[in-house]
Design a protein around this nucleic acid. Structure first.
Lengths: 249, 249
DNA sequence: CGTAAATCCGGCAGATACACCGGATTTAGG
DNA sequence: CCTAAATCCGGTGTATCTGCCGGATTTACG
C-alpha cells in the first residue's frame, strides 16, 4: 500500500485513464495492470472479457497479473465453472465483494484455498462491465489489506475501478476488433422485429400493429436484409446486441 | 458549488450510495436527486431508464430535477429524437461530455438554446448505464461551472456519478419490478441456442455440433420450454437478455 | 422537382420450425 | 441404490417462415 494513504487528489486515476486511451497494442496491457498494482497497492488485477468479437466459439479474453502457474492451474482444474467471482460477478451489474460469497461449497473452499497458496490476496472485489453489444467483462482485484483498512479501501477501490474497468474494457474492445457496423432500422421495421422477438408470429404482430400480415413480413424481410441476418432469429439477436430494439429510437 | 472545493474525503458519495440502497418507494427519488444538486453544486440531474420492465411498449422511466415546463416542452417538441445526449449517450458505453456534441444541426442548436432558456446549465455530462437484461439508463447532469473549473470538475463528476448512476439504476430496477426468473440451460441446450441465434438452421447446427438434426430440435424444444418461450426467436431473445448465451457458462 | 426512403398491400412455392409421439445410455447426488 | 437430469436418436403432420414476384402513396431532402 504505497500511495493510497491519501485519498485527496487523484491525478493517478485520470492519468491512468488517459494511458488506457492511448494504448495502441494489447501487448502493453500487462504493464499497465502492473502499474495499477503499484499505484493502488494491490495484490493482483485481472481482466476477463467475454463476447468481444461477436463470433461464438471465441474464447474469453484474459489479461492478468497472476502468475502463469496459477492461470494454468485454474484452467486445468476448470475453476471457472466454480469460481463465484465469475459465476456471480458475470451475472451482476454492481461490483461485488468476495467476502459475500458463500464458501460452504467444498469446491469453492478448495478454489480460494489454492488461490491463497498461489499468492492471491485474501480480500477481493469483482467489477462487472457491460458493453453495448452484449460484450461483457469482469475486472477483479485482490488485496491483503487488514480488515480495518479494507472496510474503507474497498469503497474507494470500487469507485476508481468502476471507471478503470470501463475504460479498460473500451481499450480492449478498440484493440480486439468488434467492429459493429450499426445498421439503422426504420421505426416500422424495428417495431415488427420487436414483437417477433417477443415470440409473436407475423400474423399476431400484424394484429398488434394494425397491419396486414404480408406487410409485416415485408418489414421483417427488409430488416433481415439491413442487418445481414439469415433469418428472424438471427436478426433479433443482432438487433438486440446492437440495442436497436430498445424503446428509445 | 458548495462543498466541491475539496476533493479529499467523500463521505457524501458513500452515504448517497447507502441511501440509494435503502430507498423503498419511487416517490422518494426526486428528493434524493435534489440532494445530489446540493452536494455536487449542479444545475440539474436527470435519470432516463429504458427497457426496465421487460415488456415492449412500456414507456421510458423518467426522474429529473428539471422544471415540469421543460419536461412538457421537451416532450411536446419531441426533442428526444434530436437530443444528442439521448441519441448518442444511449448508444455509448463511456460517459460523454456535452461539449463534444456536433451543434451544426439546426434542431440540435434549437434544443440547447431553449434548454438554456429553461435554466439548464451550459455544461453537461451524460453517463450511460447498462443493466443485465438489456435494460439501460442515462444519467445526465448539468452545471454552470466556468470553463476553468469545468475541466477539472467533469472528471470528478464522471468518477462519482459513474457509481451513482449505476446504483441509481439498480435502485429503480429494484422498485420498478423487472423480476427475471433466470432459467438454467444445460450446456447442450445453450450451445444449440447459441448457433440458432447466429442464424443457423437446426440442420446446420447439427453438423456444427456433430449431432443429429433431431437431437438439436429436442434441445431447442427443451430450451424453449425452460425459458417459457413461444419459439426459437423468443428463446434467443430471452436467453440473450439473461446473458445465457455468453461464452462463460 | 426529382430521388430516395418509408409506409402499405397481395400471392405463391419450398424450406424450416414446431409439437407430440416413441425410445435409449450415462452421470451426479441424496 | 435410486432418482433426476443430461445426453442422444427417429418419425409425422401442420404451422410458420422465407424469398421472390407484382403493385401503391406519402414524406423528406437537396
Amino acid at each position: 500500500m504505497r500511495r493510497r494513504d491519501r485519498h485527496d487528489d487523484d491525478p493517478e486515476l485520470f492519468e491512468l485513464l488517459a494511458n488506457l486511451e492511448e494504448i495502441a497494442e494489447t501487448t502493453r496491457i500487462p504493464a499497465l495492470l502492473c502499474r495499477l498494482l503499484e499505484i493502488y497497492g494491490l495484490k493482483s488485477v485481472a481482466y476477463l472479457g467475454s463476447g468481444l468479437s461477436a463470433q461464438p466459439g471465441q474464447g474469453p479474453y484474459l489479461a492478468v497479473t497472476y502468475s502463469d502457474d496459477w492461470v494454468d492451474h485454474y484452467k486445468a482444474q476448470r475453476f471457472v465453472d466454480v469460481d463465484p467471482a465469475v459465476q456471480i460477478g458475470m451475472r451482476r451489474m454492481l461490483p461485488i465483494d468476495w467476502d459475500t460469497f458463500d464458501r460452504r461449497d467444498k469446491n469453492v473452499r478448495r478454489l480460494f484455498g489454492e488461490a491463497a497458496e498461489f499468492g492471491l490476496g485474501r480480500r477481493g472485489i469483482s467489477l462487472p462491465v457491460h458493453g453495448q453489444h452484449g460484450d461483457r467483462a469482469l475486472v477483479s482485484i485482490t488485496s491483503d489489506a487488514s480488515d480495518r483498512d479494507w472496510r474503507h479501501l474497498r469503497l474507494y477501490y470500487m469507485r476508481d475501478f468502476q471507471m478503470l474497468a470501463l475504460h479498460m474494457h473500451q481499450a480492449i474492445l478498440r484493440l480486439e476488433g468488434q467492429r459493429m457496423e450499426t445498421a439503422s432500422l426504420s421505426p416500422r421495421e424495428r417495431e415488427c422485429l420487436l414483437w417477433v422477438a417477443e415470440g409473436k408470429t407475423a400474423w399476431e404482430t400484424a394484429i398488434i400493429l394494425g397491419l396486414s400480415e404480408h406487410t409485416v413480413r415485408c418489414y421483417l424481410e427488409s430488416a433481415r436484409h439491413k442487418l445481414g441476418a439469415a433469418n428472424n432469429t438471427h436478426a433479433v439477436n443482432k438487433a438486440g446486441k446492437a440495442s436497436l430494439l430498445s424503446q428509445i429510437p
